[in-house]
């Protein structure tokens, strides 16, 4: 057993875990954060995507023991008391069908828009290309990301009171 301290959604957790435990299992089984999904378990489908220190990773491919001192954001940490603009945008355009890929989609979107709020359609498509979706054909998800850009720009404008051009 090894001891790790991992910050998940702003809270620091210290646990003694098996050295071969995957980050995915740490989140789902140790912390009971079931929003992160397991799809293929081999880093192809992106259902288990989480954000580690600002970058998306497949949590099925990362050992929890290697995450000591790292900061993780899961789908549970994206919104607060209210839904995040990305989540609201996804709902508004109808981007969610069965929903299994959506936690990963939202996190890939967040990682992109946190870095580049002006991402083009091509950049959006590339950013979510590691997240497979069998239901939607992606089009409404891309529309959702674009709507989220508008929403986030609006709320950023309000926050700094700089107004919109």
């Amino acid at each position: 057993m090894v001891e790790v301290t991992i910050t998940v959604n702003g809270t620091s957790y210290t646990r003694k875990i098996h050295p071969l435990m995957r980050l995915l299992d740490f989140l789902r089984d140790e912390l009971k954060l079931k929003g992160t999904k397991e799809g293929c378990g081999e880093g192809e489908c992106g259902a288990c995507t989480v954000i580690m220190d600002g970058r998306t990773i497949n949590s099925c491919l990362v050992l929890a023991a290697s995450c000591d001192g790292k900061e993780i954001i899961t789908i549970e940490g994206v919104g607060g008391a209210e839904l995040h603009p990305i989540q609201r945008a996804f709902l508004e355009v109808g981007a969610v069908q069965c929903g299994y890929c959506i936690p990963g989609m939202v996190l890939s979107t967040k990682a992109l828009l946190d870095k580049n709020l002006d991402a083009t359609e091509e950049e959006i498509k590339e950013a979510i290309s590691g997240n497979l979706c069998r239901c939607t054909g992606y089009q409404k998800i891309v529309e959702g990301v674009k709507l989220a850009q508008t929403k986030m720009k609006e709320s950023r404008g309000e926050a700094c009171e700089c107004g919109r051009s």
């Binding site: 109808g94 069908q97 979706c133 069998r134 239901c135 939607t136 054909g137 992606y138 089009q139 409404k140």
Partner: peptide
């Protein structure tokens, strides 16, 4: 629409 686009994919 979602069904059709998903079907197309």
């Amino acid at each position: 629409e979602g069904q059709i686009i998903g079907g197309a994919s």
